[in-house]
Simulated scan of single mutants.
Amino acid sequence: MIEQLLLATDFTSRSELALDRALVLASGQADKIGALHVIDDTVSTALLRGEESAAPPILAELFDARLEPDAPRPKILIRKGDPFEEILAAADDRGDDLIIMGAPRRRRFLESLRGTTLERVLRASSRPVLSVRGPAKTHYRRVLFATDLSEASGFALQTAGCLGLLDGIHITAVHALWPPVPHMVADRRIPSDLAQKQMAAEKAEAKREMEGFLSGLTLGPLRIDSRVIEGTPHMAIRDCIPDFSPDLVVLGTRGRSGILRLMLGSVAEDLLSWLPVDVLAVPPEDTARPQNAKHHPRKP
């Protein structure tokens, strides 16, 4: 389960959705949350705080509107510098189990070159990162697990389970089968009927491999429906959204195809921009963690 988590906020409506999700995941223990806001080096911290001994007024108001008067409050963290660097540093200093951020906005010019803050955090983080887009009225109920059948991919789903995100929910696992055969048909290199038979055989083999992969994961008594879909990873995920109506997509940031790594920064609209639901991105198990981290997330 989650012992403590880091909420990165910039006071936008996107961050408010992330705050609501953080409170749900904290299960009534708001003091598990570290609420981080990063300001520019040229801005005085005192201007944001009002009084040095008090929490930033805008953050205090957000919490007061959501928590009972006598309920514990999240720890307020104010840092100066590059948001990307300070978010990672704060998570390392605290040893958080999870980083929560709002979904990315439309990219500005410089962000199109180096990525949004969220994308940069995802590339470098040694901890799971949750990008929040939807409202957080309840715990997650339907999860779409995007897998390339790699060890890193399996670790992503196991990590979601360890964080308590899979308890009592419906899980659909989807594996993308990129079809080279139809391209050969288009080039008239093989007959279409032979291509269809070959693709059917490849799909059946992928289905068997996927079922073996899922059965080998340590997940407890979870029921997982599996699907093999022809197409690229992002096409498969996109096509599953209307069919399964998930409120969370779980994926690893590296693996056979490096699903998220391939998407980030490589196309105008990546997964985080167009997916209408929350996304949990999990780095590989062997990702190095800083020596000064207070504790590490529990391993599956």
Rank of each mutant, 00 (worst) to 15 (best):
Q198L: 12
E205C: 07
P242M: 03
G212I: 00
D193N: 07
I241D: 05
G265M: 01
G212A: 06
R254Q: 07
L272M: 15
M210F: 01
L271R: 03
P191A: 09
E209S: 15
V267P: 01
G255V: 10
L264H: 06
T218Q: 13
T218H: 12
V250L: 12
S226P: 05
R238P: 05
D243V: 12
D239C: 04
Q196E: 14
P242V: 08
Q196Y: 03
M199S: 03
E230P: 10
L219W: 13
L251H: 02
E269S: 15
A195W: 00
C240E: 15
A201Q: 06
G265A: 01
R227W: 00
M263Q: 15
K197W: 05
S215I: 09
S215M: 14
G255F: 14
E202A: 14
A206L: 00
L271S: 05
L272D: 11
F213A: 02
G252N: 00
C240H: 02
D187Q: 12
D270C: 13
T232Y: 03
V228S: 07
D187K: 05
L217M: 04
E269Y: 07
T253P: 12
L194K: 00
V249E: 06
E230A: 07
T232P: 04
I237K: 06
P233I: 04
R188L: 07
P246G: 08
P246I: 13
S273L: 11
F244S: 08
M235F: 10
G258L: 11
R188I: 08
A268W: 11
R188D: 13
T218L: 13
T218E: 15
A236G: 09
G255Q: 04
H234N: 11
R188K: 13
S266E: 02
G265V: 01
L219F: 10
